[in-house]
């Protein structure tokens, strides 16, 4: 709250004023433009734009593939985080640094690299092709790309929580006669759950909006491998700005709800850690 005495440290008005102006000009006003533009549509127009069969098909693919990628990242991310925190092995720091690659590698580069690997003549694709398994240009390809972009989230949210588990708890369980596996499942795992859920939600949220890494490997066939962000771009290129904006507001509403949910999860997670 405002204190009666002015702080001796200067620059409050200047720094807050600049922060709010910059935030409004770059973020808040342009975002408001999207919602105002969408509100210019009549209700039937809006429903037609956001719920036509082609758009519904894109939601199904985007949400389905993002969910599957989040689940895979939760399972394997847990294993990676556990190995990185608990097992000493040579080169651990290099492997640890490499986990951030999906953040650092431009999405277009990831997109063409994954396509090259999983195309029918690619390093992996050529072994699957004879068995009738196709990855590039199918929904499975979308799933692969989304798994790549979401990979760091689960690992990075779990690592500090695993590090902070007090060894006394595990000692107590061992002294009381629990086997190592029982200790892991009943003592170590439950406090990790909030962080695991947070990491999953972050990977899922990131995957929903992803564009660059997916458009190359998906093949972009309407009704089959067309993700929602691509549909927004397509509508924009066809000068259907209102349609693109309507879909964008639906996606923004979902993203902001997820952001709120992630913030609540993080609070829950922190309470768990300090308890």
């Amino acid at each position: 709250m405002f204190s009666r005495h002015r702080s001796v440290i200067p620059g409050f008005g200047l720094s807050l004023g600049f922060t709010l102006t910059y935030l409004s000009l770059i973020v808040l006003v342009p975002l408001a433009a999207a919602f105002l533009k969408a509100s210019g549509l009549t209700w039937p127009e809006f429903v037609e734009a956001v719920a036509s069969p082609r758009v519904i098909a894109s939601y199904k693919l985007t949400f389905g593939a993002s969910f599957a990628a989040g689940v895979v990242n939760a399972v394997f991310g847990l294993a990676v985080a556990w190995v990185l925190v608990r097992y000493p092995f040579p080169g651990r720091r290099i492997v640890d640094a490499l986990v951030d690659l999906p953040f650092a590698l431009p999405t277009a580069v990831a997109g063409i690299a994954l396509t090259a690997i999983y195309a029918p003549n690619g390093w992996v694709g050529q072994w699957l092709e004879p068995h009738g398994i196709k990855i590039a240009y199918t929904p499975t390809g979308v799933f692969i790309a989304l798994t790549f972009v979401g990979l760091p989230f689960v690992v990075r949210t779990l690592q500090p929580v695993i590090e902070e588990i007090e060894p006394e708890l595990e000692e107590a369980a061992a002294t009381l006669g629990a086997s190592r596996l029982q200790t892991i499942l009943r003592v170590v795992f439950p406090p990790l759950l909030p962080a695991l859920l947070t990491g999953f939600a972050m990977a899922f949220a990131r995957a929903l909006g992803e564009y660059g890494s997916v458009v190359f490997i998906s093949g972009n066939m309407p009704m089959r491998t067309e993700i929602t962000p691509l549909l927004i771009v397509t509508k924009l290129e066809q000068y259907d700005t209102a349609g693109a904006t309507a879909i964008a507001t639906v996606m923004l509403a979902v993203s902001f709800t997820l952001l709120l949910g992630i913030n609540l999860l993080q609070k829950w997670s922190r309470r768990h850690q300090t308890a």
């Binding site: 975002l31 999207a34 929903l208 909006g209 564009y211 660059g212 924009l236 996606m251 902001f256």
Partner: peptide
């Protein structure tokens, strides 16, 4: 939290 595509779109709208 905003999709990159939508980040571009909002400037097109302005």
């Amino acid at each position: 939290a905003v999709s990159p595509v939508i980040s571009g779109l909002i400037y097109v709208l302005v």
